[in-house]
């Protein structure tokens, strides 16, 4: 049987390693299943850093296309998520280089009004929109306290939920370096984090 056909016979709950192996053998179906598993998290990773829905969707698409094209270069299948995030961060870096935007988290005026699932016309929707806006203001102000690397490590750890080992692979730095950056970041945001909670309760 053709290996590509064989790969498309994978069960619905196929292991990620099997999907990667099948995708490496040329199965588009297997790759689409990998996309479905990672797209939401990858989109969040990109949009929180670019703050633009359109650009985030373009970047996510580019990331997956590039991943598909270079999949044979992935040596350790277990590191797929780190590898994907590494491509995404490089794309975001390219995006900012291209756009020559001052910094990843610039002035607050640049925070986009994200599309809300609730109707802004209804009181509940309006309240939620306000709360959401307040949250993002507080969130970006908190991130502005951090140096570039501290910010990246903080986001990868608590927003993107990567382990220290995965962050180390994604950023290509040693684990002790990652821990140092994370520790510095936590020291800086500790007090801010208290205010954060209060603001959200309001």
């Amino acid at each position: 049987m053709n290996p590509i056909d064989a790969a498309d016979q994978l069960p619905r709950d196929a292991d990620e390693t099997d999907l990667i192996r099948a995708a490496q053998a040329g199965s588009r179906e297997a790759f689409h299943r990998l996309v479905d598993r990672h797209q939401a998290a990858l989109f969040r990773l990109v949009i929180v850093r670019t703050r633009s829905r359109m650009d985030a969707e373009d970047i996510v698409q580019d990331v997956f296309f590039k991943a598909y094209a270079k999949l044979d270069r992935l040596k350790r299948n277990a590191a797929f998520r780190s590898w994907l995030y590494q491509i995404a961060l490089n794309k975001i870096r390219d995006y900012y280089r291209r756009r020559k935007v001052r910094a990843i988290f610039g002035s607050l005026e640049e925070i986009p009004e994200y599309d809300l699932p609730e109707s802004a016309q209804s009181p509940a929707g309006g309240y939620r929109q306000m709360a959401r806006k307040a949250f993002w203001q507080e969130f970006y102000q908190m991130l502005n306290l951090l140096a570039k690397m501290e910010r990246e490590v903080f986001l990868l750890r608590f927003f993107d939920e990567l382990s220290i080992k995965e962050i180390s692979r994604t950023l290509g730095k040693g684990e002790s370096t990652i821990k140092t950056h994370l520790y510095r970041a936590l020291r800086k945001v500790r007090e801010r984090a208290d205010r954060f909670d209060l603001k959200m309760e309001v």
């Binding site: 996309v35 750890r157 927003f159």
Partner: peptide
Amino acid sequence: GRMARELSPDALGRVRL
């Protein structure tokens, strides 16, 4: 981090090759 994830918008379409 969880709050930020919950308040992040969702992707509109599925990426397909």
